[in-house]
Amino acid sequence: MTAIQTSGLARRFGDVVAVESLDLHVRDGEAYGFLGPNGAGKSTTINMLLGFTPPSSGSGTVLGYDIEDESLAIRQSIGVLPEDFGMYERLTARKHVQFAIDTKGATDDPDDLLSRVGLSDAADRKAGGFSTGMKQRVALAMALVGEPELLILDEPSSGIDPNGAREMRAIIQEELDRGATVFFSSHIMEQVEAICDRVGIMSGGRLVAEDSIDALKDQFDDESRLILTVDAVPDGIVSRLEPVDGVLDVRVDGTDIVTSVSNSRSKAVVINAVEDAGGVIADITAEDHSLDDLFAAFTTGDGATRGDARASRAEAALEEVDA
């Protein structure tokens, strides 16, 4: 069975296209990372899945239920950790979880759930005084009510410290082991790498990639980045390096010459070319592309072509060098 399926799902707000013809496919029992920078259309998509926002066109199902006509059945069967939620400030953590239990007609013990998310000590405290991380834990406990078949977690680790993020990953893993499907969105690639079987990457309202992380990485495996720090950047170096076989991109940043190369052999050619041009190399840094580069490659620019993506990736690399 398919946990989430959309076809041609789209949402426009006036002239702005928030989500454009989305075909999403989340398999039963998998951990699916829904990635993309802020404003890529992730939240609008989730809002459509939850019935918060009706689609402008297209259709979708969650656990086989139609997102427009059977929204109640969907929300009965899933657990939701919404984004930008607010607490009932005067109700305690336990009352929040109890409310979810009562609404779903579930039989969970609120204290068990609060202990799972590490909030046993705060069960009787009013949520008004909670930190962002604590609020996030309450919301997660509410999402876990009723052993849902599918968990939709919208930016679950926002506002959570690294320790909390680790605990959250452990809980997600427990849910996966139980057989649940987990669909979670994030704008940070690293968070999904440890858990997700597959990822979908949104950019500019479109799904620009949907595959396993390994498969996505393979596309970039041969490429790496070479940064040459020189005393003085030779004139016209960019136009000299660009025609070199295997060089995908060249940028100059201060005294750094940053190149993306498609294979290791090209590195030596680049170094020689720089020296030939009169550049005195003070330092050489070579590195494989990180997951962040991969993410940036798909999501910057309009994400449509890899050529565009490369330029942006180099830009991202420059920022790292600066830092």
């Binding site: 109640l72 930008d84 939620f85 009932y88 409310f99 609404t103 509410m142």
Partner: peptide
């Protein structure tokens, strides 16, 4: 009030019409 505070996301994320 729930719309402004965002708690409506809990309310409508749960099976409430």
């Amino acid at each position: 009030g729930e719309r402004e505070s965002g708690s409506i996301r809990f309310l409508l994320g749960l099976p409430n019409s």
